Simulated scan of single mutants.
Amino acid sequence: MNTSFSPNALSVRDPWAMVPSIGNLDAYISAVNRIPLLTPDEELSLGRQLRDHADLAAAGRLVLSHLRLVVSVSRQYLGYGLPQGDLIQEGNVGLMKAVKRFDPEQGVRLVSYALHWIKAEIHEYILKNWRMVKVATTKSQRKLFFNLRSLKQGFKGDALDGDTHRSTLSADEVAQVAQGLNVKPEEVIEMETRMAGGDVALEPQSDEGEEAFAPIAYLSDVSQEPTRVLEARARDELSGDGIQRALEVLDERSRRVVEERWLKVNDDSSGGMTLHELAAEYGVSAERIRQIEVAALKKMRKALAPA
């Protein structure tokens, strides 16, 4: 696959054909960095073609020549734990919005105009997908969200005691950040706490193998699974009212045999009477008592079966 680009490569009718079909992020970054930049005159000409004639090929060339800008901006947001590929994708959306709205007669280069739109899309993506979106709800909190990390690095750089591994802000530093970003000190502390905590995947990642163990394995409550709840409810009913209804279908002797053999528990936990004890009481053989027991249990199961 040839990924080299000539200076006049952007003149092709289908500019998107210049980006090779590759799935590797490093290869993509390498490819877009090889796309030549537009001169001011080329950018002005293409901008007029897009504005006056809705020329999609011109729009494509403007976008392609600035893909490297999106890659550069995306690197500034790698500390938020989101894949760079996703950040680049969202940044590209912002770039296309900028190209669509670009006015070449304003005397501003597209690179300066597009920077705002690229960052805006990436900011929105981070706020929607990161776990502390509920905190960054106001304009000042959003500013805190995207500036706290760099401010903390600045405090570490100014430290006189050599403690460059300190992860938390002092009370004075919290006050400085709160004053500078127009937020409450408590909001600074809460935001720092959330940013300091690591994200944990609930499910094992695909490359961790079959033996991978993740929190989802012990966070799920199997006792509340619907089928288990229904089974437990049915079991409780059968062990209570259900057993009583089943005993009512038996004659007196069969009922006593079942109660003595299966339902009675003495104080010494020895259970009820044995087959031989019941046989002696009723004047029959132990085998006859066993037959009565089997027939009685069969009747009870039939009585408990759903209609």
Rank of each mutant, 00 (worst) to 15 (best):
L38I: 10
R68W: 01
V73E: 14
A31N: 00
P20T: 02
G23F: 05
L25D: 00
Q106Y: 10
V63R: 08
D103W: 03
G60A: 12
E90H: 12
V111P: 07
G79D: 11
L110F: 06
E90K: 10
Y77V: 11
R34T: 03
I22G: 03
A59G: 15
A98H: 11
N33D: 13
I22V: 14
G85T: 07
Q89Y: 04
Q49S: 13
R34A: 07
V32M: 00
S45W: 01
Q49I: 09
P36R: 07
K100C: 03
L110K: 06
V93Q: 12
P83E: 08
Q106N: 10
K100P: 00
K97G: 13
L78M: 15
Q106V: 06
I29G: 03
D86M: 01
V63H: 04
F102Y: 15
V99P: 04
D41R: 14
V71I: 01
K97V: 07
L56N: 12
D26N: 14
A54D: 13
E90A: 11
L95H: 02
L110R: 01
G23M: 09
A31V: 03
G79E: 12
R34M: 02
E42C: 07
N24Y: 13
G94I: 03
A59F: 07
S112K: 12
V32N: 02
G85E: 15
D41T: 10
G107N: 12
Q106S: 09
H66S: 07
V108F: 08
N33T: 09
K97R: 15
Q106C: 08
G91V: 07
D103L: 03
L78K: 13
S30A: 15
Y80S: 02
G60V: 05
V71M: 03
G47N: 04
G81D: 11
R51G: 02
L50Y: 03
R75D: 06
S45E: 07
V70S: 03
M96V: 09
R34H: 08
V63L: 13
D52Y: 08
L62R: 09
M96G: 04
V111Y: 08
H66A: 02
P36W: 00
T39E: 08
G47C: 06
P40W: 10
R61Q: 11
E43D: 05
Y113S: 08
H66E: 09
H53W: 13
Q89T: 10
G94E: 05
D26G: 04
V93E: 04
L82H: 06
G60I: 04
